[in-house]
Design a protein around this nucleic acid. Structure first.
Length: 505
RNA sequence: CGGGAUGUGGCGCAGUCCGGUUAGCGUACACGGCUGGGGGCCGUGUGGUCGCAGGUUCAAAUCCUGUCAUCCCGACCA
């Protein structure tokens, strides 16, 4: 399947003598991004260039998330890219968790290389006294800053979000899902009470779930992480887990209750209303361009991207079909009227009147780009006062009257959005399999994949052994966890409910 | 970092084992003509230091050594 272009980037190498069509499919994510080609033999790998069409989708996601953050009382701010090493190491668990994937700045100047005229080299005299870590996440700088902002309970809560890039020098990268540099938002909040911080962490996880489900049409399961899967430095990690078409799970967003760990590490204290000193309670939460990967791997088909109307850079495209210049003129007049009526209804539309491409090529391109609805207008339509309406998600076409077109399209966009979600939910529901023996557990993972719902004795050791044997990890303990007496699928020890296992990205 | 594979016009590949004219094919791109309701056809063209460096040879895309990068598996990974 085409979405394997992401799942299996090696597709290109395996394919021999591809036709034009197959070549496009094999790399159709090129509509959104390309792998960065910075310089020959460059050490910078696993970065991606987000092309305009892809970035337009990210902007839509940003805009909607931003609205939701503000509706829950948050503000945006921006903190520095560089983290002095001494700050970075303050919260030990966090530092340890990220240490292996940090890019580090050691010098601040280049100079002409005396041995290689015309070339530059690092000036050995410009060595930094203290190395700067390129942020893999911003807790350290932010908490160091908050320290100066917080003295009294009257200064709390602090509810700040940052849109930024971060760098994680992973040993192995994967387009969209794990790039060396990625764009994200990270929220960092400080609270006077534990309960308030916990509520915040849960609330933001709910915001993510709402956004991903309602806006991106990707169903998710909300839950908490086990201790071993938890964010480094967190006391509780809430998450949303999605299921991709190939049966692997994808962590789509996380929200952490950080307890007082960072407050203690950075000495952030405040005076309570009772006049006592206390450390503040913290949360952090984030989603990234990884969500674009989730979008692709959830909805796309062999013809390319399928975008939910809410995210599509344009929801409708109009393609004229004509032979003569006069016909094009006549069609353009009609197209202009249609566009006006659509825009009045807040529907974004593009008129593809390029004379350099033929209709078939345009159809193919817009399918590749996932435009939800296509209108084709030709001479026959002018005669009959009709247009051809095509739906990207179902690939169906119908001839409809021009009268009432805007209303019809408005409804169709709603239908497409819903049906994409419902289709994904249906797929997901078919891929949550309850099992009660370890043989079943292995068999399900090997055959159909997806989530396996099983009893677990709650120990790290069992979790690890299952991972070693099957590569499946506990994706989450679902928030709607039901108490059910049972026995651990692996150890047979008593268990009080089922958790979700899966192979994950 | 361990195991495996790959690197040849913009893109996708063949050629390498067994060295030998001017390095091919598809696609893309440019121009011309015929076309025109789903990626059109015909013709003519443009474009390649065969990843890089060194070696063997009369002769290297092809053999040898080194090196860089990419991909897959593993390790690693909120």
């Amino acid at each position: 399947m085409a979405y394997n272009a992401i799942v299996v980037p090696n597709y290109n190498n395996m394919a021999k003598n591809l036709t034009k069509r197959e070549q496009d499919y094999s790399k159709w994510y090129n509509e959104l991004v390309v792998k960065a080609d910075l310089a020959e033999n460059s050490a910078v790998r696993g970065c991606m260039v987000i092309k305009p069409y892809g970035y337009a989708i990210w902007e839509k996601m940003q805009a909607e998330l931003d609205k939701m953050f503000k509706a829950t009382g948050h503000q945006n701010a921006y903190f520095p890219l560089f983290v002095p090493k001494s700050l970075f190491e303050a919260e030990e668990k966090n530092a340890e968790g990220f240490a292996k994937e940090c890019a580090v700045v050691t010098h601040y100047r280049l100079q002409n290389d005396p041995e290689n005229p015309g070339k530059l080299r690092v000036d050995p005299k410009a060595k930094l006294e203290e190395e700067l870590v390129v942020r893999p996440t911003s807790e350290a700088v932010i908490w160091n800053t908050y320290k100066g902002w917080i003295q009294s309970y009257r200064d709390l809560p602090i509810l700040i979000n940052q849109w930024a890039n971060v760098v994680r020098w992973e040993m192995r990268t994967r387009l969209f899902l794990r790039t060396a540099e990625f764009l994200w938002q990270e929220g960092h909040t400080a609270h006077a009470t534990k309960q308030e911080a916990l509520d915040e962490a849960k609330q933001m996880n709910q915001v993510y779930a709402d956004f991903v489900q309602n806006f991106m049409a990707i169903p998710v399961i909300q839950g908490t992480k086990t201790e071993s899967e938890r964010f480094a430095g967190a006391e509780e990690t809430y998450c949303i887990e999605a299921l991709m078409q190939d049966g692997k799970a994808l962590q789509a967003g996380t929200s952490h209750f950080l307890g007082q760990n960072f407050a203690k590490a950075f000495d952030v204290k405040f005076m309570t209303s009772e006049g006592t000193q206390d450390h503040v309670w913290a949360t952090s939460w984030g989603v990234s361009t990884r969500l674009m990967g989730a979008l692709i791997m959830t909805h796309s088909d062999d013809n390319g991207l399928v975008l939910p109307p809410n995210l599509a850079p344009y929801q409708v495209v109009i393609v004229p079909i004509y032979k003569s210049e006069e016909q094009l003129q006549a069609i353009s007049t009609v197209a202009q009227n249609i566009m006006e009526s659509l825009r009045v209804n807040n529907i974004s539309v593009k008129y593809d009147n390029r004379t350099t491409q033929r209709p078939g090529a345009k159809f193919a391109q817009h399918e590749l780009q996932g435009v939800p609805i296509r209108i084709a207008i030709g001479p026959k339509d002018l005669e009959n006062k009709t247009v051809e309406l095509a739906r990207r998600d179902t690939l169906t076409k119908e001839n409809v009257p021009m009268a009432g077109l805007a209303e019809r399209i408005g409804q169709m966009l709603t239908t497409v959005q819903e049906s994409l979600y419902n289709k994904a939910v249906e797929f997901r529901e078919h891929h949550i399999t309850p099992v009660d023996t370890f043989d079943e557990f292995k068999a399900v993972l090997a055959s159909k994949g997806g989530f396996v719902s099983a009893h677990w004795d709650g120990t790290k050791e069992t979790e690890q052994q299952i991972k070693d044997l099957t590569k499946a990890t506990i994706r989450c303990i679902p928030l709607d966890f039901e108490v059910e007496e049972g026995h651990c699928v692996f150890s047979g020890a008593p268990s009080r409910g089922r958790v979700l296992f899966a192979k994950a990205y």
